[in-house]
Each structure stands twice: as C-alpha cells, then as structure tokens.
Amino acid sequence: MRLRNKPWAQKLVQEHPEAILNQPDPEKKIDWKSRFDDFSKPLAIEIGSGKGQFITTLAKNHPEMNFIGIELQTTAAGMILRTKLEEGIDNLQLMCADAANIAMFLPENSADIIYLNFSDPWPKTRHEKRRLTYKSFLREYQTVLKDDGHLEFKTDNQGLFEYSLVSMNNYGMKFDFLSLDLHHNKSEIAQNNVETEYEHKFAAKGNPIYCLHASFK
C-alpha cells in the first residue's frame, strides 16, 4: 500500500546516511561491519518493512541480534528511521532499495532470518515475477541466508499464501511451520508472534493470518 508523500521523511532520510542507505548502488559493496557495533551477531532482515512496527519491536526486544529493514518507499523508510532515532535502536540499520537486488547488497551466507510480512500480492498473472515469493526472489534469499537460515512469511491474502506454498515447494524448500490461522494457533511460534501494523488491522476485522516458515536445506 503506497503512503501519502511526507516531505519531512525524505529530508530525514537525507540527513542520516549513517542510519539508512538511500537507493544504494548495487555495484558498490556496502561495509556493513562499519554500520553495526558488532556485525558478528545473528542477523535478521525484513523485506518490505512498512511503517516499521514489526522490525523496531524485534530490534528493541533482541539486542543480541542485528536487524536490517528494507523498504522501497521513502516515506515509509522515513517513518521507521524516525522511530529508530527517537528510541535509540542501535542494532537496526535501514535501506531504501528494491529487494530484487538483495544479494548484491548483502554478503553471501550472512543472514539468519528473512521476514516477508504482508507483501503486495500482485494478483494479476502478468505481475507474477513481482511477487516476493517468485523463484527469482527465492534465489536471492538463498544466496543471502546462511545454510541453517530460514524464511518467515505472513499474509492475510489466501491467494498469495497458496501461490507461495507452490513456489517454495517447486524450488525445493522445506516447510518447518505452517498455519492457516496464526492468531488462533496454540504453538510457541504463534504465542511469540510480533504483529505488523497491517496484521493488527486485518486480524481485528476477523481475517485469518496465514504464516509459514521455510528453509532451503
């Protein structure tokens, strides 16, 4: 969902290059070690961070980890950046960029978890290649994730969930967790769930939240 343009967000992004990479050149290597106090900590990446409720909550709750939030919209990235700065979240870096190039922005085998939360479903068949669970994106994730890393995916869109199951299965991924109604699931994973803004809104309307965890090994 595209947000209304907020001029302050663009200005904030430009003023804080130490906290956010704004449309980085995929041909230039990013020195991630210089952007974190300790880049050896486990790394989690969220692709499509929206307004940032999910990624900022996780980063605050898990100081023993590093987090990278990737968001294409500058306005949304600016909102996350404002929260990061106001709350002093030092273990979170942001990047305003297209996730289609994620393997060019990050070292191979560097991430422990990749989160895909409420991605645009791109329902038209001609837009299949834009879906974040299309095989070309899965290839990028596989490159970035460690051998024992995994992908966590949530959506309220049944069609996208079904498509993603097929796409990941065809790619040879292994499913470690599946739920057709996460908020009524009794598992430990469900009990420890951190909601996104959209998730809270959709669940309040009674919509089921679909969830899966999958790995490449």
Score class of each variant (00 low, 15 high):
Phe153Gln: 02
Glu128Met: 11
Leu138Tyr: 06
Phe137Val: 06
Tyr115Cys: 03
Leu145Phe: 03
Ala99Asp: 05
Asn101Val: 15
Arg126Asn: 10
Ala100Asp: 04
Phe105Cys: 02
Met104Asp: 07
Gly159Val: 10
Leu165Cys: 09
Glu140Lys: 10
Leu160Phe: 03
Leu165Arg: 13
Asp147Phe: 08
Ser167Met: 10
Asn109Ser: 14
Ile114Leu: 03
Glu140Gly: 02
Pro107Trp: 07
Ser136His: 14
Arg139Glu: 13
Tyr134Asp: 10
Tyr115Trp: 14
Phe105Gln: 09
Ser110Leu: 12
Glu140Tyr: 04
Leu145Asp: 06
Ala103Phe: 08
Gln158Arg: 15
Phe161Asp: 06
Phe118Gln: 04
Pro123Asn: 12
Asn157Val: 08
Asn157Phe: 01
Ile113Leu: 11
Tyr115Ala: 04
His150Trp: 15
Glu140Ser: 07
Asp156Trp: 11
Tyr163Thr: 02
Thr125Val: 15
Leu116Trp: 05
Ser136Glu: 09
Glu108Pro: 06
Val166Lys: 14
Tyr141Phe: 15
Thr133Pro: 02
Tyr163Asn: 08
Ala99Gly: 14
Ser119Glu: 07
Leu160His: 07
Lys129Trp: 13
Ala111His: 08
Glu128Asn: 13
Thr125Cys: 00
Leu106Asp: 04
Leu138Asp: 02
Leu132Trp: 05
Gln158Tyr: 10
His127Asn: 12
Ile102Asn: 02
Asp156Val: 15
Ser136Tyr: 08
Thr155Tyr: 02
Leu151Tyr: 14
Ala111Glu: 04
Leu106Ile: 11
Glu108Ala: 11
Leu132Met: 14
Asn109Phe: 03
Val144Gly: 06
Ala103Glu: 10
Asp156Gln: 10
Gly159Asp: 12
Lys135Ser: 14
Glu162Ser: 12
Asn109Met: 01
Thr143Trp: 02
Thr133Ala: 03
Leu106Pro: 03
Arg139Ser: 13
Arg131Trp: 08
Leu160Glu: 01
Ser119Asp: 07
Asp156Gly: 11
Pro107Asp: 04
Leu138Cys: 10
Glu108Gly: 13
Glu162His: 12
Glu140His: 07
Thr155Pro: 00
Thr125Gly: 00
Thr133Lys: 02
Arg131Ser: 04
Ser164His: 05
Gly149Val: 04
Asp120His: 05
Lys146Ser: 09
Asp120Arg: 03
Lys124Val: 04
Glu152Ile: 14
Lys124Pro: 06
Glu108Cys: 07
Asn117Trp: 06
Asn117Leu: 05
Asn101Gly: 07
Thr155Glu: 01
Ser119Cys: 12
Leu160Ile: 05
Glu108Thr: 13
Leu151Glu: 07
Lys146Cys: 05
Ile102Asp: 00
Asp148Gly: 06
Pro107Met: 02
